[in-house]
């Protein structure tokens, strides 16, 4: 394993604040918020980041890996500035998520799981995002977009380009 990672001074303060929410004997409960913090800090959750979280909550690193690998929203590899996740569960599939995905794939020139060369976008599929009545839906970073059409997708991407 590479050299151990440590949080920056600023992140350490936030980690301390997160840990303060839990009684000492339940420090391990802080694993998910600390993994979010790690992802904010380094963009993705590497094994070194998992080990860093494990040290903070005082458990074996594989127990952090169990959690981090369970949740798809923790990135295990570096991702682009914007992560686009197209829901591909049944209701979205019936409302045309395949076209939305293909459109994004063609427009950005990347396939499932890939990141554009300029490092701006990563394209993914997602399981149900709990908006079945408004499909197809797309998760852009942490924001959910519903009732998608290819034109609407272009608008969203343009908005991101400007921002």
């Amino acid at each position: 394993m590479a050299t151990p990672l440590e949080f920056t001074e600023e992140a350490r303060k936030r980690a301390a604040e997160i840990l303060s929410r839990y009684p000492d004997e339940y420090r391990k409960s802080a694993v998910v918020p600390l993994l979010h913090l790690a992802q904010e800090e380094w963009g993705f959750v590497s094994p070194e980041a998992m080990a860093c979280v494990a040290r903070l909550i005082g458990c074996s690193p594989v127990k952090v890996a169990e959690i981090a690998t369970f949740y798809p929203m923790f990135n295990k590899e570096p991702v682009g500035d914007h992560v686009l996740a197209v829901c591909h569960t049944l209701p979205c599939a019936l409302t045309g998520c395949g076209d939305i995905f293909d459109h994004l794939s063609d427009k950005l020139g990347i396939r499932l799981g890939e990141t554009t060369e300029d490092g701006r976008f990563t394209l993914r599929k997602s399981e149900c995002l709990a908006a079945c009545d408004r499909g197809p839906v797309l998760l852009v970073n942490r924001k959910l977009h519903t009732h998608l059409t290819t034109a609407r997708v272009d608008e969203i991407l343009d908005g991101l380009e400007e921002g």
Binding site: P47, S60, P61, V62, K63, A65, E66, T69, F70
Partner: peptide, 22 residues
């Protein structure tokens, strides 16, 4: 009490695993 083993990944992809380097 050494906790070297865990279940990583989700659903049908779940596997018993050790942590890199441990």
């Amino acid at each position: 009490g050494t906790s070297e083993l865990g279940v990583v990944q989700m659903g049908s992809k779940s596997e018993i695993a050790t942590f890199e380097g441990v």
